[in-house]
């Protein structure tokens, strides 16, 4: 399966991932090559095969509903790019 540069730009937007304009064609080539590689799977009959999401087929473990985390806001916000009044700052979203 072959992708176009428009496809790649759309995927990059979905992933909120900036890619340099001059690199778009090489990403398009790489992605098309990867899709060609994984296309081998389509030839295999997998009818009635249960998808394997987890190597040990474990069920998600439950735990008592009690708080185990302590408040570490100060530690976490020390490494944040921009904070004010204990809030993470981002560009204005609503006018």
């Amino acid at each position: 399966m072959s992708l176009t540069t428009d496809d790649v730009n759309q995927i990059a937007y979905l992933a909120r991932l900036g890619i340099d304009h001059q690199d778009t064609s090489s990403y398009t080539q790489n992605l098309s090559d990867m899709l060609e590689l994984v296309a081998q799977m389509q030839a295999v009959n997998t009818e009635n095969i249960e998808p394997m999401a987890h190597p040990l087929d474990n069920i998600q473990r439950l735990r008592p509903d009690i708080i185990t985390e302590t408040n570490q806001r100060d530690a976490f916000q020390t490494i944040a790019p921009q904070v004010e009044d204990k809030l993470y700052l981002v560009p204005k979203v609503i006018d």
Binding site: V8, I11, A12, L14, A15, R16, L17, G18, I19, D20, D23, Y27, N30, L31, M34, L35
Partner: peptide, 18 residues
């Protein structure tokens, strides 16, 4: 994300997103 990630990481994010 565009500035922070390198080429190989971007490739895999793109394929995974697709």
């Amino acid at each position: 994300r565009g500035e922070g990630f390198g080429t190989e990481v971007k490739r895999r994010i793109l394929v995974g997103t697709y």
